[in-house]
Design a protein around this nucleic acid. Sequence first.
DNA 1: CTGAAAGCGCTAACAC
DNA 2: GTGTTAGCGCTTTCAG
Lengths: 335, 335
Amino acid sequence: MVTLKQLAEQLNVSVSTVSKALHDSEEISPDTIERVKALAKFLNYKPNKLAVSLKNSKTNTIGVIIPNILNHFFAKALFAIEQEATKQGYNIITCLSNELQSKEEDSLQLLSNGSVDGFIMSIAEETQIISKTDHISNILKQDVPIVLFDRVSDNLETDKVIIDDFDAAYQATNHLISEGRQHIVLISNIDELSVGKLRTSGYLEALKESVNHTQDPVIVTIKREGSIEEHIDQLFKTHQTIDGIIAIDNTSGVVALQKALKHNYSIPDDMSIIGFSDENVLQFTDPKLSTISQHTLDIGKASVELLINRLNDKSSTDLVTKTIKAKLQLRGTTK
Amino acid sequence: MVTLKQLAEQLNVSVSTVSKALHDSEEISPDTIERVKALAKFLNYKPNKLAVSLKNSKTNTIGVIIPNILNHFFAKALFAIEQEATKQGYNIITCLSNELQSKEEDSLQLLSNGSVDGFIMSIAEETQIISKTDHISNILKQDVPIVLFDRVSDNLETDKVIIDDFDAAYQATNHLISEGRQHIVLISNIDELSVGKLRTSGYLEALKESVNHTQDPVIVTIKREGSIEEHIDQLFKTHQTIDGIIAIDNTSGVVALQKALKHNYSIPDDMSIIGFSDENVLQFTDPKLSTISQHTLDIGKASVELLINRLNDKSSTDLVTKTIKAKLQLRGTTK
DNA sequence: CTGAAAGCGCTAACAC
DNA sequence: GTGTTAGCGCTTTCAG
């Protein structure tokens, strides 16, 4: 690696002159600036980021902690975070917690030592289940800002970016009710998560409020990843009067549609299905799945904006929670 | 942030004593070590990684450049890379090239300044199309090691991790031939990529070698992401004798299956389909798609191993190319 | 206009 | 056993 010192030696000037020249300092003669820059370019000089960061106590790097990169929602969020961060001159260091509290803690510890200016994260499933967030508040205590997105915790005093999970499920349910559906089932493999609980509440509330709708709520909870298909198959066997499905996670909507067609339901005549899936699954379904669109790109972008705002004004004490409205996208699986 | 200096002051010893104590140096009395460690723990001291890296000229960080994180193959590769890197005590800085040569170049430039010890990357589509890899060889010239995975280039002298793309497609095609299929079509939306070209060659070779098989090759090339469905629909309309499909990218196999069922083919009786998809799509298909399994986790792991080996022995000059054998996984869409 | 010197936080050779 | 010093590469104040 070429250093300032080497440039200085070759040009017979001092290190500080070189440094200033490269920063277009007014103190330096145009001529010197010219010469310095020419040589720097020629030798492909790049300032050592470590040294600059150490000096400035500023890394221009954001730590991003993702619970599960194989979940398309998070992959897309990461995509958006990276894009916006790059645009704003920040790098990202990505850690994957794989839904484990221990890995989440490790990553926070490991990077909160000057490696990053702040964090953007979504809470690991395990952390949400055992509801222990000390490892996160410890970091906050050390004045390293954190933005939480999607999966958040009321116990943590941070900026947050969420979607209106309750409302989204509430509206989806109401839509099915307005279609005249009488037996609307909710399918979830995320009932341990904050977002899962909120979406379920929205569903329950919509059913409760609906006057001329007397069904009891039916909630299918799926624990293990692999068993979604079995559960849904089972559902169609045991509940033959089902005419509406709200799937509140990424994939079960698609699976439900698949199975419904297999069971010879005519969609959407016999049954309506609404999923929380991203558009990427649409190519796999026919008819096209109606979904609640989460505007994942906006979520990622907003997270970066919030964090950078916070970094630029650490003094500000009021926390902001930004809600990105989800939108019901009716396609081929609803009337 | 707590620093060595602060610890030293509180304990009335020198900074170097503290440093040594924390490293269990033999020079320091057990008693002092005890006291230092106790205070360090109490104050939650963490060595500033920037300073350590600067001092050691070693960051223990790997730069990972991913062409498209929304592609499940790359998400899974990233998953594997992160996992293995963490295991070996390395962090990763993730950059997304979004298939653009310019972003790839930016990322390499930005991080090859002491931020990372080396790179793991897969080449952007644009870079493969215009076949300009100077920005990569420039980094190599600066003695920053790079491991290429999946999409590689013959022009670059680096360690590589690839799958046996030619063989995989060759075998898949031969399998369909052995089933007695007479009109086997290849579908590709990645014909610009090195891996796409190799897979296509494998298909062509298998057809050519087959003695009692007289069909001409049929290759459907899809350019735009959104048009896969249309193209496949079209295919079934114009080529009604098709009885075999090899889809060489991540998604078109699933789409082909979907459409074939829609067109009332009985799968696998009337037609066999083999995709290059990951297991994650299986939940969306019925019958289950037969695939060529790419062992993506192994690819990621091997990439990290190769890079770390290289970092530990920069002198070694012989380049290694590791081939992770793909495996034909027959499921419900083949006989 | 240019240079010397201090310091970011850490390590390590070398005193004492 | 402990302390002093120099230096990683850079920025910045202050002197010249």
